[in-house]
Write a protein that binds this DNA or RNA. Sequence first.
DNA 1: TTTTAATACATCGTATTACAAGGGTTCGTG
DNA 2: CACGAACCCTTGTAATACGATGTATTAAAA
Lengths: 109, 109
Amino acid sequence: MDKEMMKGNIDLILLSLIAERDLYGYEMTKKLKRLSDEAYSMSEGTLYPALKRMERKGWVTSYWSAPEGERRKKYYTMTNEGETELERKQKDWASLHSLLHKARKSYDT
Amino acid sequence: MDKEMMKGNIDLILLSLIAERDLYGYEMTKKLKRLSDEAYSMSEGTLYPALKRMERKGWVTSYWSAPEGERRKKYYTMTNEGETELERKQKDWASLHSLLHKARKSYDT
DNA sequence: TTTTAATACATCGTATTACAAGGGTTCGTG
DNA sequence: CACGAACCCTTGTAATACGATGTATTAAAA
């Protein structure tokens, strides 16, 4: 998968991940790599600013976790607004999918 | 459909349209609006620079048509490179779709 | 006939975005 | 102790989407 394909969809990807369970940043990069069969690596220069952005928009919140003997990790968790936004993005995604389908099939003149 | 959803997918959309048959710019905006049930309007400030960009990249070529009594229109047509690029983008799109699916389903830990 | 709306192409300035490159700390293992 | 992996972050740059704006031409309405 070309990295270009991620453009414009970073937030949707991250929201989808975080919706499942709380994750910390570094973990997200590893998970994405695994889920894409090593095809896609999200650079940290993309990830961390994106997380900040989403937190600023109120879609996620974060908390530090530092259990005994473990190093600190910054976990991100979903807000209600984030869930709303995710649903919106999923709908948009479906609409775009449908639009592309129609375009390919020359649905009308 | 929110306009935001188009970000990063403009080229894919336009290539999909042009792959079906030669089209001129203004026609593309109308067709997209129709295909999306009036939900999406591609602004001309988005469209024309995008067409120029794709022509520069060799994905499409253009020709002017000015039949007797009709006003001039600039038609765009697909190149072989454009078809290759379209296939590449379609594959990427499918990969992203799969990735999102796996993210939602908590496919792994 | 004058005005208005639609058709058709284009550019410019701005805000946003993705990312490579870099910086830093902490921890485990050889 | 050295080294790499785990973890977080910022800065600068290039590309992108789009609103605003400009210019002609043609069709329709007033």
